[in-house]
Every structure is written in structure tokens, then in C-alpha cells.
Design a protein around this nucleic acid. Structure first.
Lengths: 353, 353
DNA sequence: CTTCTCCATGGAAACGATTCCATCATGGTT
DNA sequence: AACCATGATGGAATCGTTTCCATGGAGAAG
């Protein structure tokens, strides 16, 4: 356990002041003679500036925070890989937290990041605007990914709020000042994704299409309502809470209470997994008895039998773009990004029986 | 963007010295009167000590680093969740890096963590002992998870080194000083896991059993050799490099070059996935034409058709235990942990045709 | 030759915590 | 009454960096 060389050691060994060393190493002005000398000595001593001193001086920890609900959800794994790839190429560290979809844990993790003076954060939010207020107030640069926080003020009508979000992300902000948080986001084009899927199912003759949603999927639910057209049969829209168990319970309940449905759109890969399992348990054949479209293209979608038809969204890109946004913030005013989805037709949808 | 209160603000507002505030907050001695007063003022100012100052003073960043090869591999997602759960309950931050299984990137990430003065690290190593030397030398507390780094000194006979590792992890260290790195590890009982799987396949009548391995799986390969007994048919042991493509290529090549094999053990879930895909592509029916056992129990193993028989290893526990070890280090001399595996029989194995 | 400008340079102050050490008060013992 | 032990307390040093500012020298312009 040898102690590392400090800037002072380098300065002494090179016969210059610490200020000069700092300048040379961070690209300030210096004569080519001293520059060479300092660089040589630094290399010789294997000097690497300590982030500790720098962080304290600049009153901020470099790098970025990343908050996701659950890393065993393959989609969030992809998203995290994207963030890490961007961070790595920028040489920035990433502080990771997993919220379990719980706003309270999310708030706690935000608090910890604040304590660490991490001032850049990428999050798949679980809490509402109130949960996020402390971070914003503290001056954190936040970028949301995959979804937006719920609006507590709209709580009497979440559907309206989600529709609002859809508009907002189209760049058609209907009432700019009505959304207090001005936080950029990187999300998939849920409206188009869902619409394409619903149209596809309609084309196969399906009339009773259900939506199996998870927490934070208000935008997808709204898009679904829009795609199937009013009036939406409320019973055909059910929700899990985020855990695999509750997703299974929701799927199973749906199949049992509405044997008349002929197609299901699952709002995420965990929900899709639950739907496959529940269908099998109830002896429903896919796609003969029920057609299934799942959000998220994950490697195992192809392994199912039949292989699952999915709405693919670019998880890795989403993470990468979010990381870019959060790093560029300050240089450029970050603008929200909507990434395209793609319907990948495999074998889990068939004509209505 | 309001600036946070510092310890100085609290001290002034409470009419005491900064030293006293620090003591009160970190559990030092203080009269109950001042203690109350300081706590009241701190709460009132919403004071939270900045990790920056503390880190610099203690010359170490709190929390821990976590290095995994790939977060889209569900097993590493589980492992990461375990680490995060432990860290969260300890209130410690986690710095994450994804190495892509590349020793060079791993070395780079280690360098970055060193720069951040992170002195506790959990890693699924990709590089060899040489890659890890800098971290050890710098006095980092390292705990390996899932596997151990390769030994470059044994390079003439990796099998012997892996067998050595197997012994070592049994607690039967054959020559204690022969392993220079004394780094604790949390791994699955690969030997038992593989042996159980091979016995199971033997019991079904299989004679030609292949092993589909990935990088860093020397211990599993050695265990496989041990389980099938010498002489091992070298052609029946093939490797992918870690990417899904190369895993697929390895699996496909194996099936084509050795149509006589009747069973495959895949050393990880990505390899299992590749085996299923390759078998399907070559019109090999599972389990009629070929039986398959996969390492890692992942949620989608049940979704396959047939559902996959797996060697389950407790990924989440592995991460949790590793985090515990790395946090307790210093208090207790950490000892390696071997976690049990379980053969979960589903439908991907059948009698030899 | 003088003066002005510009650049390289180094000393020193910050940043916010912990911790050493000296001081002081209190209370008990001889 | 003098002395000592104990415990609370605050000032100041410290960690390693960046950055402000003053200084000094060299070159250009007058």
C-alpha cells in the first residue's frame, strides 16, 4: 500500500510551483519548456490527480448518478449499459441506485446523491414531481429516461396528465407554464409504438384488446386509449405494481375475468413475461387463443414459443443519449428526445379465432 | 439553486465551534445540552454534511465500486441488485462500471476508481492477476464475485490453475503461498453444480456431453472435466468470447461439428440462450435430439419451450454477500464464501434417443 | 532609453469536513 | 486549601486540488 504522489510532489520534483503543475495538467497556459518538464516528471512519478481535492474545490462531484427501478429488468439493463458506455468514453464515473420502483427509496437515493454533491442525474423516475423537487431545487441537472414523473397536481385525472405529456413530447406544448418542472427527457415514441401495435392487432381482426400496464406507464396507457378509441373498456386495462408476482397476478386476473379478450398488449418485458406464464397456466394457447404484443425487445423474446412479437425501443441508445444530454447540459440547453420504436413481428399474434 | 448549509453555518447558529458540531453529528462526546442544541439547529437548517469535505480529510471516498462484464446479462443484473440492496441499507453509494469482459477496459475502470479514491471494490474480474495488481498495491479492499481472475503464471496449464482454484475454494489450500493475491471471493459451488448436472444427464443415458463455456469460466470447465472423467473429448468443450454473437457461433459450430453429441451444458445464461437459438436453427429438437442444461436460473428460463432445466446460483445473494464482505473488511478478516447451487429440473433434458 | 503590454509563474486562499491539542471548568480527593 | 482527574469545548491544522492575484521578465512600441 504505497501512497500516491500528490501535485506537491510533482511540483517539487519539477522545480516549479503547484499552480503551474495544475495549469499544465488542465490545459492552461505554460511555456513549452516547463510543460514538457512537468509532464515528464508527472509520468515518471505516475502521478494521477486525486478527484478528492478537485471535487472539494469545485464543490461538485464529477460524473453522474443513475437511478433505475430494477436491474433484473432487461430493459433497464440495456439502458444502464448505454449510460455506462457514454460515461466511460467521457472518463466519468457513474453512481448507481436501484429504487425498486418505490418513491421513498428514490427520495432517499436522491438525498444520498445530494450528499455526495453529484450534480448530474439520469433517472427512470418512480416518484412524482414532489419527489423530484429537492433535486431540482438543489440545482441538479436532471434528465429523465424512459418515462416522466407523475404530476400530483393532476391527480384527479391522470389520463389527462398523460395525454398532456404526449402532447408535450410532440413539441406541441399546449400550455408551457402549466408544467413547472422543465426537465429534459429521453423517451420512446410510445404513441406511435402503441398505435402501430393496436393497428396491427386490429388488422388481424381483434376487437377486444387489453392492456397490461406497470407503474409509470401512464403515457402508454393514454396512447392505448387513444389508439383503440373511446370508449375504452376499463376492465381491459389492468396494472401490476412492478414486481414479477404482481404482474403475474394482474395478467392472470385479466385472463380469468375477461375470457372474451383476444389480444393483449403488455407494457413492458416483465409484464410480457407474466402474460406468457399466466396464459400457459390457464391453458390459453398463444397465438391461437390469445395474441400477445410486448413492449421491449429483449434477447429472450425470440426464445419463447412462439417467439414474441414486440414493440422494440432502443434501450441502449436511450441511455446513451440521456448521458450525452446530461453531460452537455450547461454547454447547450438540453432538449427532450423522442426515439423511434419498431414493431417486430414474430409469432405471438394470429387472427382472431 | 440554493447553496446548502455548511458545518460552519451550523456552528455559528448554535453558538458553538465547528469541532463540537462535528463531534455531535458523528457520535463523539458532548454534553446533552449542546447535543440537543446542535441537533435542533442542524435540523432547522436542513444541514447534511457534505461527503466532499469528509472524503478529502479521510483521503478516501466512501461507498464501493462495482465492476461487472455486462448488465444485459440477467445474472449480472441480479448480482448488481444484491450489491445495491446491501449498499442502500448501509447508506453507501455505489460506483458502477461495465467492462464488456475486456481486461483493458477493466484496467481503465480500475484506474478511474483509484483516481476517485474508492478503496472498496466488488468485481467480476475479466483480466488476470496482472490487471488486478495495481488495485491491490494501492491498498484497495477487493472482493471478487462469481469468478476469480486467471493466473498468468499458470498459463502453460490453465486447467491445473482452475483445479487449484477449486481446491482453494474448498478451503483445502494446497499451497497457501503459491497464490500471491489474497483476495476473498464469493462464488457459486461450481464443482457441485456441474457434477450434479452431469450426473443427471448420465442418468438419462447420455454419453457424449458437451460444455459450452464463456470467458472466465475456467473453474466450470475444470469441474466439467472432473465430472465427466478423463479422458475429456477436447472437441466437446468449446468457448464463446462473451458476446451473444460469438456464443451463438460457438454453439452452432459445436452442433454442426459433432452431430453425435446428445447433451450440452451451457456455462451461463447467454450461452444457454445461444444454444437454444442454434439448436432451433439447425432443426435440432430440445430435448428429443439434444438435452440442455443451462447455468443461471433466469426468469425467462421458464418461458422457453420446453422450459429450461437449469443450475441455479443465487445471483442476488452473491452480490449481497460480496457487499457485506467488502464493507466489513477491516473489522473482520474476510474469508471467501461458496454459495450452493441447485439443479432445477424443467423440460429441456430427456433420455438419450 | 523608457514605458507599456503580455505572459509565465508561484504563493496563498479557498473548498468543508475531521481531528489533534490546548484550555478551561467542574468535582472529588488528600 | 491545594491538587488532580475528567470531560466538554473551540482553535487550528490538515487533506489535494483549483484559481485568484501579485510579481517579474521579456519583447514591442514609442
Amino acid at each position: 500500500m504505497e501512497k500516491r504522489a500528490t501535485i506537491k510532489d510533482v511540483a517539487e520534483a519539477a522545480g516549479v510551483g503547484v499552480a503551474t503543475v495544475s495549469r499544465v495538467l488542465s490545459g492552461g497556459s505554460a511555456s513549452s519548456h516547463t510543460r514538457e518538464r512537468v509532464l515528464a516528471v508527472a509520468a515518471q512519478l505516475d502521478y494521477r490527480p486525486s478527484a478528492l481535492g478537485r471535487n472539494l474545490r469545485q464543490r461538485r462531484t464529477g460524473g453522474m448518478g443513475l437511478l433505475v427501478p430494477d436491474l433484473t429488468d432487461t430493459f433497464y439493463g440495456q439502458l444502464a449499459e448505454g449510460v455506462l458506455a457514454c460515461a466511460r468514453s467521457a472518463g466519468e464515473p457513474v453512481m448507481l441506485g436501484s429504487t425498486g420502483g418505490d418513491p421513498e427509496q428514490e427520495a432517499e437515493l436522491i438525498g444520498m446523491l445530494l450528499e455526495q454533491s453529484v450534480d448530474r442525474l439520469i433517472a427512470v423516475p418512480s416518484g412524482d414531481a414532489e419527489t423530484w423537487a429537492p433535486a431540482i431545487r438543489a440545482g441538479m441537472t436532471v434528465v429523465f429516461a424512459d418515462r416522466l414523473p407523475a404530476q400530483p397536481d393532476h391527480e384527479e385525472d391522470p389520463a389527462a396528465a398523460a395525454a398532456h405529456d404526449l402532447l408535450l413530447l410532440d413539441g406541441l406544448s399546449p400550455a408551457p407554464q402549466s408544467r413547472p418542472m422543465d426537465v429534459p427527457a429521453v423517451v420512446a415514441d410510445d404513441r406511435a409504438g402503441i398505435r402501430t401495435a393496436v393497428r396491427y392487432l386490429r388488422g388481424l381482426g381483434h376487437k377486444r384488446i387489453a392492456f397490461l400496464g406497470g407503474p409509470g406507464q401512464d403515457r402508454r396507457v393514454a396512447a392505448f386509449g387513444e389508439a383503440v378509441g373511446a370508449p375504452v373498456d376499463e376492465e381491459l386495462v389492468v396494472f401490476g405494481t412492478g414486481s414479477r408476482d404482481s404482474a403475474y397476478a394482474a395478467a392472470s386476473g385479466l385472463f380469468q375475468s375477461r375470457p372474451d379478450l383476444s389480444a393483449v398488449v403488455a407494457g413492458g418485458n416483465v409484464l410480457g413475461e407474466a402474460a406468457v406464464l399466466a396464459a400457459r397456466e390457464l391453458d390459453l394457447r398463444v397465438p391461437r387463443d390469445v395474441s400477445l404484443v410486448m413492449y421491449d425487445d429483449v434477447p429472450w423474446a425470440e426464445l419463447c414459443s412462439p417467439p414474441l412479437t414486440v414493440i422494440a425501443q432502443p434501450g441502449r441508445d436511450m441511455g446513451y443519449r440521456a448521458a450525452e444530454l446530461v453531460l452537455r447540459a450547461g454547454t447547450r440547453r438540453p432538449r427532450s428526445v423522442v426515439l423511434p420504436t419498431e414493431l417486430i413481428i414474430r409469432g405471438s399474434c394470429g387472427p382472431r379465432r
